[in-house]
Amino acid sequence: MLIKLSLISLVTLASAAPSTTTSTSAASTPTAAPLLPIPAFSGTFANAYPPVDKTAPTDTPLVKQWLAELNLTAMPDFPPTKFNSGGDLENPNSVPADTCDWTVTNCINKDITNCPKRTWGLTYDDGPTEFSPQLYDFLDTTDQKATLFYIGSNVVTNWQAARRACAAGYHIAVHTWSHNPSTTLTNEQFVAEIKYTELAIKELCGITPTYFRPPYGDIDNRIRGLLVQMGYTSVIWDIDTNDWMMAPGGTRTEAQVDAAFDQWVAGAANLTEGHVCLEHELYQNTVNAAIKNLPKIQLTWKAMPVAACVNDAHPYQEKNITLATLDGAQTGSGAAVKSLSASVVAAAAVAIAAASFGL
């Protein structure tokens, strides 16, 4: 069962439009020297963004522009799903098998779910939050990088933490604007959710992500097709700490989270593949659990961002930005690589989507 919590219950968010406000989150002072340049930022956003914790609108000029760059007629004709108030699909039996819906059958279609043997894909969802600086402080003590799947609403609210993570060379990725299950959104809504989050990260950090994790792992071939057209790689996971189920999200205890890590460590010698693990920078106790258990992971696996374990040194549209990888690439920035025209990229994306998802 998915427990669908509103973002307001997850973190305290501002209700005003971020384009005319500044963040109230505490400033974060990096403990490691910046590895990547980030653009200047006054504290006031130049772009207009949707209200926080609300599904992104589809009738703005920006969204219309983004939609015009895609070929929505190439997408599978699967209607959006419906979830009930308890976070469950209302009628799982109505979802056709060819949708490859992860929520229904854990179906995977070119999604990243694990890393190579003896490596650990270190990921944290739902940031940045007021608790993120504590996590980043700890990660910096051992020069440990991770993939951070950011919610757009949180990016504009806790922008200091986002800029810190970008400058420090963490792998920044997208987790939608409002954290609704992806398959419940129309094509237009999903595009808006991705692109507004992408835009906020670009404005703050000067980078355009190309990795995405669906909230609750909720994804099907319609969503995958849209992601391919927008140039994204989808990431799920193969093991789940269920840390989000600790209070206030549920009744799971920190001892139970610790026990799961101990079990994974105990079984590491018998594995033929590595892991991608689901964790959260959501609450104080999820950050506490992450800090407590990371040392035992570092002693057992080579922990790294997901892009690193799949040897993707360029996980952003800006190919002059390099992040460290398993095969030895080093984090840094260099001369910009000339990009393909938008029309060429769009045409290639449509072709890839058609080949990948049986269109």
Rank of each mutant, 00 (worst) to 15 (best):
L2N: 02
L5I: 10
S6D: 14
L7P: 00
V11M: 14
S19M: 11
T21A: 12
T29Q: 15
P30K: 10
T31Q: 11
A33W: 10
L35I: 08
L36Y: 06
L36D: 08
L36W: 04
G43W: 03
F45A: 01
N47D: 00
N47P: 01
V52G: 14
T55L: 15
T55E: 11
L62R: 15
N71P: 03
T73N: 13
T73Q: 14
A74L: 08
P76A: 02
F78W: 12
F83C: 06
N84L: 01
N91H: 11
N93M: 03
P96H: 05
T99H: 10
T99F: 11
T99P: 00
D101V: 08
K110P: 02
T113I: 15
C115Q: 01
Y124K: 01
D125K: 00
D125P: 00
T129V: 03
T129S: 02
F131K: 04
S132R: 08
L139M: 06
D140V: 05
D140Y: 11
T141W: 10
D143K: 13
Q144S: 05
A146I: 02
F149K: 01
Y150R: 07
V156D: 00
V156N: 06
W159P: 03
A167E: 05
I172F: 01
A173G: 09
W177R: 07
S182K: 03
T186W: 15
N187V: 01
Q189Y: 14
I194Y: 05
I194C: 06
K195S: 08
E198H: 05
L199A: 07
I201P: 01
E203R: 09
I207S: 12
T210Q: 10
Y211Q: 08
R213F: 03
R213Y: 03
P215F: 14
D220H: 07
D220P: 08
I223E: 08
V228R: 06
W237D: 00
D238M: 02
A247I: 02
G249S: 02
T251V: 12
E254Q: 10
Q256G: 02
Q256P: 02
W264H: 10
V276A: 09
L278G: 00
L282M: 04
L282W: 00
T286G: 06
K296F: 06
K296L: 04
I297P: 06
Q298T: 12
A303R: 08
A307P: 03
D312E: 14
D312T: 10
A313L: 00
P315M: 06
P315A: 15
Q317L: 11
I321W: 00
D327P: 07
A329M: 00
V337F: 02
K338I: 07
S339K: 10
A342T: 14
A346Y: 02
V350L: 09
A351V: 12
A355G: 15
L359Y: 11
